[in-house]
Design a protein around this nucleic acid. Sequence first.
DNA 1: ACACCGTGTTTCAAATTTGAACAACAGGAG
DNA 2: CTCCTGTTGTTCAAATTTGAAACACGGTGT
Lengths: 165, 165
Amino acid sequence: MDMREPRWLDDQEKAAWLAFLSATNLVSRRLEQQLKDDAGLSHTQYEVLVQLADAPGGALRMTELADRLVTSKSGLTYQITQLERAGLVFRRSCPSDVRGVFAEITDQGWEVLRFAAPGHVEAVREALIDVLTPEQLTHIAEGLGQVAGRLRCGRTSGGPSSGTQ
Amino acid sequence: MDMREPRWLDDQEKAAWLAFLSATNLVSRRLEQQLKDDAGLSHTQYEVLVQLADAPGGALRMTELADRLVTSKSGLTYQITQLERAGLVFRRSCPSDVRGVFAEITDQGWEVLRFAAPGHVEAVREALIDVLTPEQLTHIAEGLGQVAGRLRCGRTSGGPSSGTQ
DNA sequence: ACACCGTGTTTCAAATTTGAACAACAGGAG
DNA sequence: CTCCTGTTGTTCAAATTTGAAACACGGTGT
């Protein structure tokens, strides 16, 4: 079931992969810097606040939050501890499941988020959104949406019906 | 020169940004895992080998290499030290500039790279390339190419001619 | 030759990330 | 009720990353 000769990337594919890698790292780096400078938050911390602010009741279970952020559970534990220390978030135990822990955003968390959001959105525009035409944006949203969708469902090996060819 | 009311992202833009963030993290995570499991390399280390293998003479200056990998110089110093310890790379001083340091790939580095490449390419296909149609790939290559291009030229503030629409 | 500023790398301490091991509990079968 | 298996979060040590400071040198003006 292995190919002696792997299917290398052609020029088109290589270009796409290279662009993806570069854009990914550069955008990440830029946003990290912007958030740190303007609001004293790491991108991870900012995303925690965004997810909590979006969630009903401003709270989410640790595991659910970790999944949304695409980060490890231990990594999230660390960041929540930091944010708790900063007073932007607090932990609350789950009524229906003693093991469960809710992370909930505080008023001060909302404040910080409201303060940081405009600059962050502007940075996202400058780095990505406003660089592209609406058509490009549509195509990227669709394509990368598929990519993310597939990877979320733990598909490591190729699907059954589309094995070879 | 600041807007009281920031231009928030509309649904289309938000979807694109969300997809970009998710795809970015998920792909990164998947490749990191694949390389570590199959070849005992981190993605950063793998990219170092790729860049050196691509370079004439199999060698690059530290700064040049750091720029291509989009990483910090100190971070590169660390990784090159690790790779040197593993015998995949070695340091060589630059003839024309005593300060300069070349990182050069070794025969063993080539071997490891040849061993790791097929599996990595296959993983890249599974995660990104083969998920998309050729048209989508073209659009993404073009769009993200522009994004990367702009960010490489240290443009923090908006350009002069395209300020306010 | 000398003082100076900019460049190329490394060093260093601190922050972050990760996976494995652990502790506590939920849910169901016997 | 009791045993098993799977979850949920945290802890822990080790690896990695980062920016600032330290170093060593190149190039220029005087």
